[in-house]
Each structure stands twice: as C-alpha cells, then as structure tokens.
Design a binder for these strands. Structure first.
Length: 609
DNA sequence: GCCGTTTTCGGCCCGACTGTTTTCAGTCG
C-alpha cells in the first residue's frame, strides 16, 4: 500500500499527458486535455486523493472519470500503474525532469534530448545547461541564439527557486501587487487599474501576479510598466501584454485593453481558468464565442431572445467584429447570468447556482464585529510565543475597526513549570489587566479567552478551576503533529468536549509552503460540532489560512459555525482579518455562518450554549 | 478521457507572445 500526495499524483498525471503529447499529439489530443485537467484538479484539491479513494469517492472528483479512477486505484494498491508506465515508455525518460523548467514543454524537451543525445534522466537538466553554455543548443534546428539564452536563463531561475509550481502566500502577493500598482498609477495613460487573477479571487496562495489596465494607449502603458525599479528581467513585451520577474523571481503579468472592453478584460483575467472554460463552452451552445475582447455571435439562430438587448449597435466594434462590454456585470448578463463574486469563480458549481438563482449572499468585511483570537504582551508565562503589543493599543485598533468586541486569547500558562494553582493565579492576573482596560473602554467589549493546548493525549492544558475564570476557551494543537488521522481526531474531540472549549483554533495546523497539516476525520468533527455548538476557526494568519475554503464550504453545509480570527501576535496583524474573510467567502459562507458577525449579546449567548 | 439546461454520443475556450519556420510551432495563462 502506498500513499502518494496530491502533488505527486498531479505530477504523474502531467507526465502521462506529456508522454502522450510527444508520442502522438493529434491522436491523443483529448486524452492529453483530460490528463492535464485531472492534474489541475488534483493539485488544487483540499482533501487528499488517497483519502477520497479510501472512502470510495474517487469519481466524485470532477475531471476524474472511470478510466483515471481505475488507474489511481491501481496506484494506491500497488504503487504503480501499468497503463501509465506503458505510455511513459513511449517518451524518453529525460523528458520528465525537464518539464519543471519554465518555457520548456514536452516538445522542446524531446528536441533537446534527441539532438543532445541525453541518456541519463537524472542529469538531464545539468546536461542541457552544459550544452547551452557550450553553444550547442543554438545549433539545433528550430533553435537559435535567443532560445539558447532563454533556456539557460530559465534553468538558472529554476535553480534559484522559480518553478512552475512555486507559490507565495496571499498577503505577500498583495504587498507586491500594491507596489507595482503604485508605480503604474503614476503613468498618465492609465485610466483604470485592478489586480486580477488569483489575487482578485483571493486564493490563499498566489503563483503569478496579474494586473489589468484600461487605457487608450496600451504601448505607452507597457513601456511604463517595464520601467518598474525592481523589475529584474523582462520576460515578454508585446502590444497588449507584458511580463517581468521582480525580486525573489516573482512574475508580474500586465494586460492592457481600451476602456470600452474593460468588462471582458476584467472577467477574462480574473479567471479562474476552469470558470472561464465552463462559461465559454456553455456560450458556444448559444451561438456565442467569448474571449477577453468581447463576444462574437457565431450563430444568431441559437441566441436566446431575451439576451438580444445586450448585443446592439452601440456596443458593436465593427473593426473587431464583436460586441464589447465596458463592465463585468453586463458581460455576464449577455450570457444569461448574474454577476458572480470573484471569490466564487472556481467552477465549483457557481455557474449552475447562478442559473437557478441560488448563488449565496457571501459574507463581507463590514459584517465582522470582532476578533476573538489575539495575543497581547501581558505575560502569563505561556507555553508558546507571547504577543508583542499592549492591550490598550490593540483595543484602540479594534475601535478604529468599529468592532463591538475583542477577545484576548494568550497561550495558556505553561504547565511544564507551573502548578495548576500557579496557572490560575497567572490567568487571574491577566484578567485584572483586562478589567482595568475595560473600565476605560466603553465601545468595545473585551472577552476573557485563552488559547489552550490540546495535549498529546487529548487532555487540555488547564484545569476546571482555571477554566472557570474564562468566558470561553479556544483549543488548539501545538505539539505531536505526527499522530495518525484516527488518533488526532479522537484527540481533538476530547479537547473540544469540555463545555467551555467552544472554538477549535487553526484546525489542521497547516503552514502554507512549510507543512501540510495533520489529517482529521472531518465527518466526525462536524457531527460533534453541530451537536455540541462548537465552532471551527478560520485562522487569518497569512501562513495559516486554516481551515481552507473547501473545508469551510463543507463545514457550513452541515450547519457548523466558523469564526474568523487573526491570531494576532502584534497589533498591525489585526488588519489581516480580510484574508480570513476571503477564505470564508471562497467557502460560500454567508453572514449567518460566521460567529463573529453576531452582536455581542448573541455571541455571549452562543458561548454559553 | 471526460462530460451534460441540446447531448450517454459528439463534442472539447480563446488568445498573446516569441523565435525563427516566411506562415507556424511551442508555451503559457
């Protein structure tokens, strides 16, 4: 029995697609698409494919049909797939490592392998690099000096960490985008500007940063764009688009269109790819061809009568032969749809929901009435890191954010070097600080919370007497991450079973880009939480964003509440709330699903329930 | 190989940019 990760499975599926491509692209055209699609889906999946298989749900994955499912079953059972191996044999082994290099696709790779006579797969990248340095790539037919230079460039960037799969956390991407935006806004020809792509959809990790500009002088904007002071290398520069790498090998893409087509540009560049493909495929059946420029009517007979009002002389661009849309809403309406929130555009049923008027009214930043998980610098001699900001400045920021309430939830006093009564004394001392602060604070209600360790055996790190000093507890896992799924689930359930343990903090313990987090039996967790009024946290800390959007969606489907917290250890981190809200929005959460949209009175009531 | 508001069969999004090929192939999103 083997247990490959989703990334390993996705890589394998991509290898099959690549092998099909080099063996006979025409013949296998649609298999290639199918395998690539399956790889994309698996890569983005929030649950492990392995687990889905063990639950018999493999074919629930959209993009995985009977054939790929049966191959994956074989993979899990035996560690390999006969069919995949046969296909991969049709391609040289050195193909697969080379695919990780930007700009090298299957065909380029095979040409390199054949011309350079590369035999050893594990040295393929080094051998290509060496050949390039010796000027041998430029001599290969269809290659030249420029492509040789480009390949060498891509290899060195690959070694420096730029891979087709490396991603950055959302707030980091947000910062970079703001800087580039500031630069672009200084260009007088920029009329409208928006960060788009996964950034606009607020995905937790971002690959490239996409920026769209409306301007009637695209070339001037492009020329301005590439003068960005931290642009390290310009990747491409055309009439309407350009890209460069900025420090840390992060790619910034720009697309420029005239104002009249701004709507379709926004829509196209926001994506996701799957959402766009679904839209466009559907549009074809109504005689429409949809692109980032606008919509062409290819078969007027198929066009629905009540859509005709969106296709008039006034929005027809005769030189392009298509209808243009200045805003996104009309662009959707012209396809019989209502406007869809960017966070929902993942082809996870949003188009179908829109068609039957069942799109959720998702939560907004303004709905948030407080933050329940913050760490002040009041020293309770805690088990983990102390906050860095005083209570008063955190309360002040809470007021500026128009919060009704704020929860201090420092880590519990370490029970390693304190007796239970010493723990109680430390909590009492912290509570006194809160009471003092509350005396001078009228507009914000302060809650006496605590972040309590769920120890390896499921016991909590404080006793009942200490618990009685609190309004409620946030319980979290901070140790023994390697326990298996069943053990971890029992541990969490035991931790949550204390009547005052109301919130499970950062439920999977994942750290984006560092560790994947532990597995839980979600059905059991949801069932317990629904029955006993416990909430799962969406931790807005940039490297956590835990639980994930897809788990949020399943959580609220079962009537379990989520609570969005910043887990701030420093006052400015309280502003990270929007990233947690984004996770909730992507999980289709409405205001009613989120605990900290409640009024203080309702929240209190819930905490006591 | 997958999938369905027209379909369980017959389709499968649309386009930009680059390099070197003078009309297109490859990669990318």
């Amino acid at each position: 029995m083997v247990k490959p990760t989703n990334n390993e499975i996705a890589k394998l599926l991509r290898e099959v697609a690549a092998a099909y491509t080099v063996s006979d692209e025409k013949k296998y055209r649609f298999q290639i698409l199918a395998y690539q699609k399956a790889a994309d889906v698996v890569e983005k999946l929030s649950s492990e494919v392995y687990e889905l298989w063990s639950e018999g749900k493999l074919e629930d994955i959209s993009g995985v049909g009977p054939s790929i499912a049966s191959h994956l079953k074989e993979l899990f059972a035996t560690g390999k797939v006969k069919h995949f191996e046969e296909i991969k044999k049709k391609a040289p082994g050195a193909l697969f490592p080379l695919l990780a290099i930007p700009k090298i696709g299957p065909k380029t790779a095979v040409k390199l392998i054949n011309s350079l006579k590369i035999k050893k797969s594990d040295q393929a990248i080094e051998l290509v690099q060496k050949a390039g340095e010796e000027g041998k790539i430029a001599e290969i037919p269809t290659f030249g000096k420029k492509s040789e230079k480009e390949i060498l460039q891509a290899i060195s960037e690959f070694y420096a960490g730029r891979q087709k799969t490396s991603r950055m956390v959302l707030p980091y991407a947000y910062e970079i985008a703001q800087k580039v935006l500031t630069h672009l806004k200084k260009c007088p020809d920029v009329q409208k500007i928006e960060p788009l792509g996964s950034l606009r959809r607020m995905v937790s990790t971002i690959g490239d940063i996409d920026i769209a500009v409306a301007s009637n002088h695209p070339q001037k904007v492009i020329n301005w764009f590439v003068t960005y002071p931290y642009a390290e290398r310009i990747i491409e520069k055309g009439d309407h688009t350009a890209s460069f790498l900025t420090s840390g090998s992060k790619q910034i893409d720009l697309m420029v269109q005239p104002t009249s087509a701004w709507g379709s540009l926004l829509q196209h560049f926001t994506g996701s790819k799957d959402h766009n493909v679904k839209l466009r495929t559907r549009a074809i059946t109504y005689g429409l061809s949809v692109s980032d420029y606008g919509i062409k009517i290819t078969d007027r007979k198929k066009l629905k009568k009540d859509w005709e009002k969106f296709y008039t002389k006034s929005n027809f661009n005769s030189s392009l032969g298509l209808y243009v849309f200045a805003d996104e809403k009309t662009f959707y309406q012209a396809q019989g749809l209502k406007w869809i929130e960017p966070e929902l555009r993942e082809d996870r049923g949003e188009i179908e929901a829109d068609l039957v008027g069942k799109l959720p009214k998702i939560i907004q930043n303004e709905d948030i009435k407080g933050d329940l998980h913050t760490h002040s610098l009041v020293d309770v001699e805690p088990s983990h890191d102390l906050g860095q900001s005083g209570m008063s400045e955190m309360i002040k920021l809470a007021q500026e954010l128009h919060y009704e309430y704020l929860g201090f939830a420092e880590h519990n006093p370490s029970n390693y070097n304190h007796t239970p009564s010493q723990v109680s004394a430390l909590i009492k001392k912290r509570n006194e600080k809160i009471e003092q602060a509350q005396k001078v604070t009228k507009s914000v209600q302060i809650l006496k919370l605590l972040e309590i360790d769920i120890l390896a055996d499921g016991k909590l790190a404080i006793d009942d007497k200490s618990f009685s000093l609190l309004d409620a507890g946030i319980v979290s896992i901070h140790s023994s991450f390697s326990q298996d799924k069943e053990q971890m689930t029992q541990r969490v359930l035991k931790g949550l079973s204390h009547p005052k343990a109301k919130i499970l903090g950062h439920p999977t313990g994942r750290l984006l880009g560092q560790r994947s987090g532990f597995e839980l039996d979600w059905e059991k967790i949801w069932e317990f939480c629904a029955k006993n009024n416990k909430a799962l946290e969406i931790n807005a800390y940039p490297t956590r964003l835990d639980i994930s959007d897809t788990i949020v969606r399943e959580t609220i489907k079962r009537g379990v509440k989520v609570v969005i917290d910043t887990d701030s250890h420093e006052v400015s981190q309280m502003k990270n709330m929007k990233f947690g809200v984004a996770v909730a929005r992507r999980g289709w959460a409405e205001k009613k699903d989120v605990l900290n949209t409640y009024s203080f009175a309702d929240l209190k009531k819930w905490l006591l329930s």
